[in-house]
Write a protein that binds this DNA or RNA. Structure first.
Ligand SMILES: [Mn+2]
Ligand SMILES: [Mn+2]
Ligand SMILES: [Zn+2]
Ligand SMILES: [Zn+2]
Lengths: 136, 136
DNA sequence: ATTCTTCTTTAGAATAATTATAAAAAACTA
DNA sequence: TAGTTTTTTATAATTATTCTAAAGAAGAAT
């Protein structure tokens, strides 16, 4: 359970002013047991449900991108019309349940080591991500 | 070099009427040495450049989705605002050059075999795809 | 060939996600 | 407190994609 004060600290350290909206968004995003995969709309609705505070859709977009830029959120490429974000910013892989449109974390040990035996001159590898699509 | 007649045959066999537009799109897409990664807009412009024939944007969308449904094109999930398609419909992986926004095929032998050591009850694996992001 | 039926193309409207704008509000500084 | 900067917000704009419905083309039947 991360306290409000801790969020304020973290925001300040990131040169982001600790506004009510941002603190609330932090609480929704980071006070969780498990990693959280969400779309902008998911987050908007979760924040809206809380009686104490609301944030406009624009603020959700702004904040998610601010957090993403600071490295507190990760963007997940899935074949969908909406962008997914992930509170787990470590390098890891995913199941994607196509029917339920749901992302599930795969630990690195659930997927063997992947070594890429090809290289492109002048380019280096930034990330290696596996997406495993699931069907019924 | 695939002939017009062959495209007509293939379209007919797929219960798609061989229209001028579709034949032209086939020519742009499938008369290539290498696999072709493209967005709807890329294709629209390539077809437009040809003096002999033009196709509306709506037709490009319609045709790409018809071909996709028939299994002649593959959709590639990358973190972008546009959907990418691929004329290589076999199971394979990709490099994605983030700066140049370009996809490059990886052969299966360029990536070791990937075995997923986790399963979700009631679900089976549909596909396993690796996306390797490249930076300078 | 002529007519009929079905499919396809197309322009333009509609939708949906995202980004931009700019004024009011909140946070910070002096 | 007053001044400065950042943030929020409503709203407009943009962009990719899908929908609609009328005109055109293709195929089948006559
Ligand atoms: Mn994850
Ligand atoms: Mn490919
Ligand atoms: Zn972002
Ligand atoms: Zn499709």
């Amino acid at each position: 359970m991360i306290s409000k004060t801790e969020f304020i600290q973290k925001l300040r350290n990131s040169s982001l002013r600790p506004t009510k909206q941002r603190i609330d968004i932090c609480d929704v995003l980071f006070n969780r047991e498990k990693t959280f995969h969400f779309t902008i709309n998911d987050l908007f609705n979760l924040v809206k449900e809380r009686k104490d505070q609301k944030a406009s859709l624009a603020t959700i977009y702004n904040t998610v991108h601010a957090f993403h830029k600071k490295g507190y959120l990760k963007e997940i490429p899935i074949n969908s019309n909406q962008t997914y974000f992930d509170t787990n910013v470590t390098d890891h892989h995913h199941f994607f349940d196509v029917k339920e449109e749901r992302l599930i974390d795969l630990k690195n040990e659930d997927v063997g080591p992947i070594d890429i035996q090809k290289s492109i001159p002048g380019k280096k590898i930034k990330s290696v991500e596996v997406l495993v699509k699931l069907e019924d």
